[in-house]
């Protein structure tokens, strides 16, 4: 039986999505334990250069499905082709980037193959479960820093991972091979047909690039506004983020949500204000160099993952903190 580990290498507008290289890094780690090769599946119009890029990041095999018709993501043909390739080669594991496109594609393929799929994993590793090496998929659980280990009894074992969660595969000498795949399109595949992709300029600098991120939670409600979060960010030259209640309140936009359903950031400094520290939130900034939290409840789980925690009321602390940091810079 083949024991390949596959990564769906997503390209958009002729560029590899960075999460593909992050999954490749994890795939290599898994293969050291499981054995077998790490392969990427790449689809698009002219993607040889991208295949080379994958090889330069340690990919051992790049399966390439090239056809002008695949230049834009098309849910029908992409799904059908991928399901077919997986049925034929029977990889043991398939990893997907949880992008706006990767998430739906993985779900559809999982249904077609009648196999399991775990969404938004924060960690993946191989462990012996009942005497059999299996992919352990870790997702945030309810209550503080609880996490769940999930396994899948069918193959391939499949998981999606958000961008920024795993470390990119390092560059090495390219040694792998590029293998072309047959592209057969069926008549019914284009019942949904992508006409165009329109790229829009982001209004703000992407959160992922900021060196300092200041995030606010439901606790800001007691101040009656989110304004001071923005002010602190401005003083520090950082970006603003928030928890899900902050999004529900309309204080932040969806592109500033941090956590399992939002962005994963790894700034030099992350400041959490008035957030209890649910695992679904904290998973979004675990890799920050320094974490500072301000929170009034000393029992809140946010203190378990912060480097510095201030127990206190934001009403008095936040204005002082802004004042003090203004001075200090």
């Amino acid at each position: 039986m083949s024991k390949e580990i596959w990564v769906w290498a997503e390209q958009r507008q002729g560029r590899l999505m960075p999460v593909s290289l992050e999954l490749l890094g994890k795939g290599q780690e898994l293969s050291r334990k499981l054995g077998g090769k790490v392969a990427a599946v790449l689809m698009g119009a002219e993607v040889r250069e991208l295949a080379a890029e994958l090889l330069e990041h340690g990919c051992e095999k790049v399966y390439v499905a090239e056809d002008p018709i695949l230049s834009l993501y098309q849910s029908g043909p992409y799904g059908n082709l991928l399901a077919g390739y997986i049925e034929e080669s029977k990889p043991e594991i398939v990893l997907w980037g949880a992008t706006s496109v990767g998430g739906e594609l993985a779900a559809w393929v999982a249904a077609r193959l009648r196999t399991g799929l775990t969404a938004h994993c924060i960690d993946l590793y191989i462990d012996d479960i009942k005497g059999k090496p299996q992919l352990v998929q870790v997702v945030p659980g309810w209550g503080g820093n609880l996490a769940l280990k999930i396994v899948c009894d069918t193959t391939p074992q499949m998981a999606t991972v958000k961008p920024g969660v795993m470390a990119e595969a390092p560059r090495t000498k390219a040694q792998g091979e590029i293998l072309p795949l047959a592209v057969e399109i069926k008549g019914g595949d284009f019942r949904a047909e992508t006409i165009e992709i329109v790229e829009e300029e982001l209004e703000e600098r992407p959160l992922e690039e900021a060196k300092i991120v200041v995030a606010g939670g439901w606790g800001l409600n007691s101040l009656g506004s989110f304004e001071l979060v923005g002010e602190l960010a401005k003083v520090l030259g950082g970006a603003v983020g928030g928890t899900r209640p902050a999004l529900d309140k309309g204080w932040i936009t969806e592109s500033s949500l941090i956590g399992q359903s939002g962005k994963t950031v790894s700034p030099d400094l992350f400041i959490s204000l008035g957030a209890s520290g649910a695992a679904q939130f904290t998973t979004g900034f675990e890799k920050a160099k320094v974490i500072l939290a301000v929170e009034q409840n000393p029992q809140a789980p946010i203190f378990e993952i912060a480097d510095i925690g201030i127990v206190g009321d934001l009403k008095s602390i936040l204005p002082l903190l802004i004042q003090e940091l203004k001075k200090g810079l």
Binding site: A147, L148, D153, P298, E304, D307, V311
Partner: peptide
């Protein structure tokens, strides 16, 4: 359902965890 939860566990952080009152 092919996926199943096998275990829940507490994640431990390696942070400094200095709390200031």
């Amino acid at each position: 359902s092919p996926t199943r939860v096998v275990e829940t566990f507490q994640r431990v952080s390696q942070r400094r965890r200095e709390v200031i009152y």
